[in-house]
Amino acid sequence: MSDSPVFLTSTAFPSVVERLRAAGCVFAEDEARLLLDAAASREDLDAMVARRVGGLPLEHVLGWARFCGLRIAVDPGVFVPRPRTEFLVQQAAALAPPGAVVVDLCCGSGALGVALARRLGAPERPVELHAADIDPAAVACARRNVAPLGGQAYEGDLFTALPPAASLQGRIDVLLANVPYVPTDDLPLLPAEAREHEALVALDGGADGLAVLRRVTAEAATWLAPGGAMLVETSEHQRDAALAAFASGGLVAELATSDEYWSTVVIGRRRTA
């Protein structure tokens, strides 16, 4: 017989917190509550705590991540959406027209596209949502997340993943491109949770961290609708080079920064004429 949630909470909470804290979990109490809520039995709880103590990201243990107030399914190995990226979604929501055509490139779990579509969606003019990633595991996860919104997810390398039948070229109002931007030599400096449990292709941005960004900006203008916008997240020290990449692609670029989210976002628009 499974233990009741009330019983688990009242008897197991202190020991779970102690185990998590000993493993270095900074927010041990918060994580313990989430694990206790998710566990169906004492055995289930012990297995989940063991996976977390062993270094698996909490989101992979739970099977979901909290992002923009939503529960986004996140499978093992799939990039976990970061809280700082909520700032990018906020910026995108301020730019998107009603009934926007939205593409989430390098989508991972599809969190950005889903969060934006939820913000913008209206029954009379729903968002047209597409997502793409080169990682098969990410695409499988994203499909589950975008399907309730009528979205589609495709596997492939950047724009080549988007099927011709979708006729997206020149129609995209908002291009969310949360490309990898960690320089290759800096990958060993990442937290172990990211290095060991997220796909390398979702992290490695090449020699200066901007290799994938440059590939996207080189083609973005041909995919955006007139006045459409592309948004990417970058680091403070990469901002000037990122702006230059947007300009090289023929986009009019600007920066948006947030001290609250510790986030730097580059926004590039296709010229209307």
Rank of each mutant, 00 (worst) to 15 (best):
V232Y: 03
R84I: 06
G151T: 09
Y261K: 07
V146C: 08
G63P: 06
V89Y: 11
A273V: 15
A122G: 00
F87I: 14
A245D: 09
V49Y: 08
G69V: 01
H237Y: 15
V78R: 04
T257E: 15
L58P: 04
S167C: 07
L187H: 10
A93Y: 04
E254F: 05
A177N: 12
F246D: 13
G77Y: 11
D37A: 15
G99T: 03
P191I: 05
D37P: 01
S41V: 12
G150E: 08
A28F: 00
R143K: 13
V17F: 06
A28T: 00
G77H: 11
L168Y: 10
G250Q: 09
C25V: 09
D259G: 14
L162D: 09
T222N: 14
A207N: 13
A218T: 02
Q90N: 14
V252P: 10
D157Y: 10
V127R: 05
L175R: 04
S10A: 11
R143P: 01
V216H: 02
V61Y: 00
C106L: 07
G151L: 10
H60T: 05
V102Y: 06
M48D: 01
E59P: 00
A23H: 09
E198Q: 04
F159P: 05
V6I: 13
G63F: 02
A12W: 08
L255A: 14
V232P: 07
A40K: 15
E18P: 03
C106D: 03
V252Q: 15
V182R: 00
G156C: 10
G268W: 02
A256Q: 12
I267M: 14
